[in-house]
């Protein structure tokens, strides 16, 4: 099997994970115009919850569902309990708060579960497949990863395009004051939006841990990759998050494969800087000017 193809396929699978985290950042940004730097740490915490539930029940899927549910609760509580209090202040205040939340989560989680590196189960094999004696550099877990992230993307697209709830969420994001005059309960939708975002983040955490293992800052690099992917996609567009995530996955896979794995993080930062210089509005911003 051609080395280029190997890098492409592994890049796409990793890109789906970055897309899931980018999606979380995009949903939070759309709802409240805040970049949530704690998104990765929240996903780490929910993955620890998944591991605890898995160890208790012996069933991967119980842990999976528990992580997503915990994600919704953590996201909603973070918005209602923390971000809401600074929403009328300068945008930087909320950003600093999310950084504080990141530090708190990375300190509290090891107090509960310890700081040692843990292995995390996968529902399907993470070993590359062999079909008819031919080696294919994709694992069943990679296919699961791609499928489940695509499923979430489609579900969100349906939610935003075809439901009243989605219409209200879009209105609340575009014009909160007008939306309130039309009877939209904007405050509740912001809480719901953060909850939904953190479900997507929790999914990224579950998909990262089987290969990259679980430890209190295991999501730090993923946050950088996911953030770059989100910026690449314009920070406002779920489709942009998907395309940005895949582009990041491919770019990092090629950088790691051809130039050396040590350069991956530096490569991500180089891509981020390049985007901000060439096309700071991202690739997928459709509407005209926004208030930020």
């Amino acid at each position: 099997m051609n080395y280029f193809l190997v890098l492409t396929l592994t890049g796409l699978a990793a890109g789906m994970i970055y897309a899931a985290l980018a999606l979380a950042l995009v949903l939070v940004w759309r709802a409240t115009r805040v970049v949530n730097f704690a998104q990765g740490a929240m996903a780490m915490a929910t993955t620890y919850i998944a591991l605890a539930v898995f160890q208790l029940t012996g069933n991967y899927w119980f842990g999976f569902v528990a992580a997503l549910a915990a994600g919704f609760v953590i996201g909603a509580v973070a918005e209602r309990g923390i971000v809401r209090w600074v929403e009328n202040g300068p945008p930087l205040n909320a950003v600093i708060l999310t950084l504080g939340l990141l530090l708190i989560l990375e300190a509290v989680v090891p107090m509960i579960w310890g700081a040692q590196i843990r292995s995390f189960p996968a529902p399907f094999s993470i070993a590359a497949m062999q079909v008819g004696g031919v080696f294919i550099p994709v694992s069943p877990f990679n296919i699961f990863t791609i499928g489940v992230v695509l499923l979430v993307m489609v579900a969100l697209l349906v939610l935003f395009r075809f439901t009243g709830l989605g219409l209200s969420m879009r209105a609340a994001a575009f014009a909160p004051e007008i939306a309130r005059l039309l009877g939209v309960r904007v405050g509740r939708l912001l809480t719901f939006g953060w909850g939904l975002a953190t479900v997507a983040g929790a999914l990224a955490g579950l998909l990262v841990a089987p290969t990259l293992l679980l430890y209190p800052n295991n999501m730090d690099a993923i946050l950088v990759y996911g953030f770059t992917a989100a910026v690449l996609g314009g920070l406002d567009s779920p489709i942009g998050a998907l395309v940005g995530g895949l582009a990041m996955g491919l770019a990092l896979s090629f950088i790691g494969g051809y130039l050396g794995p040590d350069l991956e993080t530096a490569g991500a930062l180089a891509i981020l800087i390049a985007i901000l210089m060439v096309r700071p509005q991202g690739l997928f911003v459709h509407a005209a000017e926004r208030r930020v």
């Binding site: 219409l167 879009r170 014009a175 009877g183 939209v184 005209a288």
Partner: peptide, 19 residues
């Protein structure tokens, strides 16, 4: 008018009836 420019005419109208 305060119309939401990013939404369609139909979506603007529906939005006001959703509640």
């Amino acid at each position: 008018g305060g119309i939401i420019r990013e939404l369609t005419v139909d979506e603007n109208l529906r939005l006001a009836h959703l509640w």
